[in-house]
Design a protein around this nucleic acid. Structure first.
Lengths: 145, 145
DNA sequence: ATGGCTGCAAAGGATTTGCACAATG
DNA sequence: CATTGTGCAAATCCTTTGCAGCCAT
């Protein structure tokens, strides 16, 4: 798990995981990916899915998203961009907003940290949930924030 | 744990947890808080610490930070502000930068989400770690990203 | 007195890991 | 063929919870 990987092999499992992840329109958890990949490789194990998501993200092929809660989500698009999560159904979407390039330099000057990157995430209620939520459901809002 | 709390009591445990959390200059994990609180209340349990951090955060007295990794961190200052985390030592500090008020409206218009809030986090190497890091340690960088 | 809180310990859920075997380059 | 990767299951880690007694209001 440390980054001394030289001979990365493209196994069938790795291949399928990557392909399937890229088909998602939202950003699935390891479990969700497992479910889909399974349909093509019935004998694959959850552990393998985790291991490969890890490798692929180290290779920069995909992104690991670290939202609230314990569940990690993955993004087949390795380019820098921002996300928004629905507090009710937990769906994660992309945010159409340019990447803030300049702020990192500013923050470096102010904090003396050597900046590697940043993450900007919005949370709220997705269109569907806002619509469905006439009033019940409100109580559960706090859960992940 | 659902938000129908009416009669919140200010117990000694809750009091001390809040006091100690507010003394931290960085943003500690539940475990760290437990260690400190313990010195004043030797019989307190980790479970109680977790429960109270949850309650205090629901009350808006403190903030729960959801950084990468599984460990949650807590912030004694409930005001909106941004954070930066050191990828090596895992320290979390505040970022001196005004809160971006306006972007939420913009994102609402673009995504149709009803926006509740946003979170902006930087990560990199804290001053001390950048200094100490002549070259070893580099391998571990990927760990939380 | 009466809910809310606590300590304790056990349960939980997501992720990681050890191992023996299988597959890749 | 030497290694890297896999499946399986057990282990780990942080966090949550059930319960019986305790304590603030």
């Amino acid at each position: 798990m440390t980054s001394d990987r030289h001979n990365i092999r493209m196994t069938r499992q790795r291949q399928v995981i990557l392909e399937e992840l890229r088909k998602f329109m939202h950003h699935p958890s390891a479990e969700e990916i497992y479910e889909v990949v399974r349909r093509r490789l019935p004998r694959i194990s959850l552990g393998t899915v985790y291991r490969n998501l890890e490798v692929l993200s180290e290779l920069g092929e995909i992104r690991k998203l670290e939202f609230g809660g314990t569940i990690k989500r993955f993004d087949g698009d390795p380019e820098d961009h921002y996300h928004i999560r629905c507090n009710l159904c937990d769906r994660v979407d992309n945010v159409p907003m340019p990447h803030l390039e300049d702020i990192e330099t500013r923050i470096h000057l102010e904090t003396d940290y050597r900046i590697i990157g940043h993450r900007l995430e919005f949370f709220g209620l997705c269109p569907e949930c806002s619509r469905n939520m006439i009033s019940p459901g409100l109580k559960k809002l706090n859960k992940n924030n």
